[in-house]
C-alpha cells in the first residue's frame, strides 16, 4: 500500500517532466531509427569495400583517398556549388513577381495561380517539358534562336551548358515557390509603417529596401532555407533530363552516390557511403547555420 502510494506520488511529482518526454518519445524513436542511426551507419560503411552482398573488407580511409583523385567526384562537387549559387536566383525572382502580383485588380487570383502553377506539377514533368524545350532540332528554344538568327544549340548535349540548362529548369518551379512565400509575407506588411514611410518621402527602391524588405525578413529566411534544400535535392531533374550525362558532366553528389551505390553498374556501397558522408558534411554547414540563426531568433524573442 505504501509502495503503491510512493509510486503514484513519484509519477505525480514528475508529471511535468514525464508528460513532454512521453509525447516526444515516438518522434525521437523514429528520428533515431530512420535518420540518426543510418547516418552513423553511412559513416561506418564508408570505411569498407563492400558490394552489398558478400563480405565487407575494412579499407580504412581508402574510399576517401580515391574520392580525392576521382575526377567525376570533383565535377559533381563543382556542379553542387553551381546549383547552390545559381538556385538562389529564385529568391529575388520570386520577390519581383510577388511585388508585381501584390495588387488588387480584377482576376488577380487567377494570375497568382497561374504563376504558382509550375510548383504544383511534379519535378519529373518539369524535367520532361524542359528537355523537349531544349531538343536540338525540334525544340522551342532553337526555333526561337532561329528566328533571331542565331545558330541552334544542343543545351543538354553540351557538357559546358548542360548543368546550367538543368538549373534553369529547376528555377522555374522554385521561383514560384519563393513567390508564394513572399506573397504571404507581403500580406503581413504593416500598412501604418508604409504610411509613415510615405510621409517621410520614401518611395520606390528606398521604400522597398528600408521599409518593406525588413518586414519580409521571415519570408526571406524560409525562402533561403527551402531553396538551399531544393538545390541539394536536384536529383530528379538530372535523372530525367540527362541521366548525369553527357559523359558525367551534369552529375551532382547525390546522383553520383546513387550511381556508385545503387544503380545498375554500381553496388560499391563503401564508396557510395563516402560520397554520402561528404554530402552530409556540406549540408551540415547549412543546417548548422539555420539552427544557429533560429536559436538566435528565439533567444531574442524571449527577451
Amino acid at each position: 500500500m505504501a509502495t503503491a502510494h510512493d509510486d503514484m506520488s513519484w509519477v505525480r511529482r514528475n508529471r511535468m517532466t514525464l508528460t513532454p518526454l512521453l509525447f516526444l518519445a515516438p518522434g525521437v524513436l523514429f528520428f533515431l531509427a530512420y535518420v540518426i542511426i543510418p547516418i552513423l551507419q553511412s559513416f561506418n560503411i564508408s570505411l569498407y569495400d563492400w558490394d552489398g552482398l558478400g563480405q565487407a573488407t575494412y579499407v580504412g580511409l581508402d574510399n576517401y583517398r580515391e574520392l580525392a583523385t576521382d575526377r567525376a567526384f570533383e565535377i559533381s562537387l563543382w556542379n553542387n556549388v553551381k546549383w547552390l549559387v545559381l538556385y538562389l536566383l529564385a529568391i529575388p525572382a520570386g520577390l519581383l513577381i510577388a511585388l508585381f502580383l501584390n495588387q488588387t485588380i480584377v482576376g488577380i487570383r487567377l494570375y497568382k495561380s497561374l504563376f504558382f502553377f509550375p510548383f504544383v506539377i511534379s519535378q519529373v514533368v518539369v524535367g520532361l517539358v524542359f528537355s523537349w524545350f531544349y531538343l536540338p532540332r525540334e525544340g522551342l528554344l532553337n526555333a526561337v534562336l532561329g528566328v533571331v538568327g542565331m545558330d541552334p544549340i544542343n543545351v543538354l548535349g553540351d557538357p559546358t551548358l548542360a548543368t546550367y540548362g538543368i538549373i534553369a529548369a529547376g528555377l522555374w518551379p522554385q521561383t514560384a515557390y519563393c513567390m508564394i512565400l513572399y506573397l504571404t509575407g507581403l500580406n503581413a506588411v504593416d500598412p501604418e509603417q508604409i504610411e509613415a514611410g510615405r510621409l517621410d518621402g520614401a518611395k520606390g527602391w528606398r521604400m522597398l529596401w528600408h521599409v518593406i524588405l525588413p518586414q519580409l525578413k521571415p519570408a526571406t529566411f524560409i525562402a533561403f532555407v527551402v531553396t538551399i534544400i531544393g538545390a541539394l535535392r536536384s536529383f530528379d531533374l538530372i535523372s530525367i533530363m540527362t541521366n548525369g550525362g553527357p559523359f558525367g558532366s551534369t552529375r551532382v553528389l547525390s546522383f553520383y552516390m546513387f550511381e556508385k551505390a545503387l544503380s545498375e553498374y554500381g553496388f560499391r556501397m563503401g564508396y557510395g557511403s563516402a560520397i554520402a558522408v561528404v554530402l552530409f558534411l556540406i549540408m551540415l554547414v547549412f543546417i548548422g547555420y539555420f539552427l544557429w540563426s533560429m536559436y538566435q531568433d528565439e533567444k531574442a524573442a524571449r527577451h
Partner: peptide
C-alpha cells in the same frame, strides 16, 4: 565488370562527341 563498363561507356560516348 559492371564498374569498368560504366566508366568505359562514358568514355566511348565522350569519344564519339
Amino acid at each position: 565488370p559492371a564498374e569498368m563498363a560504366a566508366l568505359a561507356m562514358e568514355g566511348l560516348q565522350e569519344f564519339m562527341v
